[in-house]
């Protein structure tokens, strides 16, 4: 490569130096004198100038279309942070490293890696194709057909059963309605009894007050003598009060025993 060949006059280095203007003045003058008598070097010099012109045009367009690297922001970071500011994504670098490792590996290692990858892929594909997945109340069941059915508990929390609304029959509805009516009726009777009892108590209170007034009046007329009501008056009073003996206090209880 270092040997310049295919130049009939073997002046390649001088030609290049002259072409790029790096020849010393004496060498440049000597080469110009040579050019006057060497058609091959003249032809080559012209052709090389044309090549340079084409490369220069390409470079100019390349500079016009060169993108900004958007590195100013990353480089403004402290150097400690810059160490982590990688221009490539991690996965791309990882893939490139893997590719480089693979290409730099010997052929036997490449072949072995490919074979192992194919076997793994084939086994995985076979397992996927033959796998049977079932999900029932007992959990998830996976069957790879490599043995007995393997069961494992469901990894998800079992969903509690939704509350089911009981459906009553017409007969049950009628029975319940009858029970409800009976309960209402009993409640009404109890309420009536309560009102009756309250009325009786109120009446007894009034009679008590009346008896007290009568006793006071009698005491005024016969201040020195205690008087016992005749028994027929007591019975008459009971009838007027229309009360049972068990429920109401007797007049004796109300007035006290008299001698």
């Amino acid at each position: 490569m270092n040997k310049i060949t295919n130049n009939s006059c073997a002046r390649g280095e001088a030609l290049v130096a002259y072409l790029y203007g790096e020849a010393q003045s004496a060498q440049a003058s000597a080469f110009e004198r040579h050019l006057e008598n060497c058609a091959a070097c003249r032809d080559e010099l012209t052709a090389f100038a044309f090549v340079r012109e084409g490369v220069g045009e390409w470079r100019a367009d390349l500079l016009k279309g060169a993108p900004s690297l958007s590195l100013a922001g990353a480089l403004a970071l402290p150097s400690s942070q810059l160490a982590t500011a990688r221009p490539e994504r991690d996965w791309r670098r990882a893939f490139a490293a893997l590719r480089e490792f693979f290409t730099l590996s010997p052929v036997w290692l490449q072949a072995g890696t490919v074979a192992a990858a194919l076997v793994i892929c084939a086994l995985a594909a076979l397992a996927v194709v033959r796998a049977e997945v079932r999900w029932d109340e007992s959990g998830i069941a996976v069957n790879t057909h490599s043995g007995s059915m393997q069961q494992r508990p469901a990894s998800v929390t079992p969903i509690p059963p939704a509350p089911v609304e009981r459906i009553y029959t017409q007969q049950e509805i009628e029975q319940l309605t009858a029970q409800l009516s009976a309960a209402n009726q009993q409640l009404e009777e109890t309420r009536t009894q309560l009102q009756t009892a309250q009325q009786r108590v109120a009446r007894a209170e009034r009679q008590k007050d009346s008896a007290s007034v009568i006793r006071n009046a009698t005491a005024k007329n016969e201040p020195t003598r205690k008087r016992r009501a005749p028994r027929h008056e007591e019975a008459q009073l009971k009838r007027n009060l229309n009360t049972d003996d068990e429920e109401l206090p007797t007049l004796l209880d109300l007035f006290g025993e008299t001698d």
């Binding site: 040997k3 310049i4 290049v16």
Partner: peptide
Amino acid sequence: KSRLYTALKQL
């Protein structure tokens, strides 16, 4: 120099 000359020639 030699590489430049060879490069120009091949181009």
